[in-house]
């Protein structure tokens, strides 16, 4: 069973790479979807460059939001920041009711068109799942474990670094993964504000009623999102595999 999953994973990755590097070889597949001799494969830009640009934007935003969200999560779970905890939890709840598109739309007037509003929207929207998971992870450490850690003479820092964060890591990583996937999707909408990415392909398709464009843009983005999610999950399993002494 795990063998089969690996095969599917590798096949999906191969498909993505093949499509991005040699898109024209897929032309016959998409040709039936076009009308009046429209091009079956996106021809107004390099698919690989677009995909990499989108991936770059997404990862940059995710890195920034991970840093801030995990930092904030640590801060409000320390005794000195405890009074901000109830407020931050309420804000997380409220924040999740903001649609990413609205965040994107509101960011445009602030910073203009291009990558920037997309980065801001992705950053802002990515904060929430990571922050929430960091909070849950840090707050659900068993009290007996924390008590034992202090009782054995760990300093607050040692306790955080060698007990609390390791215990919260699976949840934090899941939050990061979740926000990455949401971000890949939202980044396509970023193309409406002129951010470089595969959204461009979809929007070109929508504007020229070229279903082939829409389909390849959507499929590529979806593939990217799934592979990212799945790859991170695999990485997580490897990283978190318990280490033994011998």
């Amino acid at each position: 069973m795990p063998r089969a999953a690996t095969v599917v994973r590798l096949a999906a990755l191969a498909l993505l790479v093949a499509f991005l590097t040699k898109p024209q070889s897929f032309a016959p597949l998409f040709a039936p979807l076009t009308q009046y001799g429209a091009p079956p494969i996106y021809d107004q830009g390099n698919l690989l460059q677009l995909a990499l640009a989108q991936l770059g934007t997404v990862c940059l935003a995710a890195a920034a939001s991970s840093l801030v969200a995990v930092g904030l999560g640590i801060l409000v779970t320390r005794p000195s920041g405890a009074q901000f905890l109830p407020l931050s939890r309420t804000l997380v709840n409220i924040g999740q009711t903001f649609p990413p598109v609205a965040v994107l739309a509101v960011a445009v007037p602030l910073v203009g068109f291009g990558e920037k509003p997309t980065l801001i929207a992705l950053f802002a929207y990515g904060l929430l799942p990571i922050f929430e998971n960091t909070l849950v992870g840090l707050r659900t450490c068993p009290p007996a474990v924390l008590e034992a850690a202090s009782g054995m003479g760990m300093s607050a820092r040692q306790r955080l670094l060698s007990v609390e964060l390791p215990l919260a890591t699976p949840l934090i990583l899941e939050g990061i993964r979740l926000s990455l996937v949401i971000n890949v999707g939202t980044a396509t909408i970023g193309s409406t504000v002129a951010a470089k990415g595969l959204g461009e392909v979809i929007i070109a398709g929508l504007l020229s009623s070229n279903t082939a464009f829409i389909l390849q843009g959507g499929l590529l983005t979806g593939l990217m999102a799934i592979l990212l999610y799945d790859g991170l999950a695999a990485l997580e399993r490897r990283l978190l595999r318990p280490v033994t002494l011998d």
């Binding site: 068993p142 474990v145 924390l146 008590e147 034992a148 054995m152 003479g153 318990p242």
Partner: peptide, 19 residues
């Protein structure tokens, strides 16, 4: 924390580090 390293401490529910 230095004091506690010289004193053993056992609690109910053991508090072992699960990871």
């Amino acid at each position: 924390y230095l004091l506690r390293r010289r004193i053993g401490y056992v609690i109910q529910g053991h508090g072992l580090f699960p990871h």
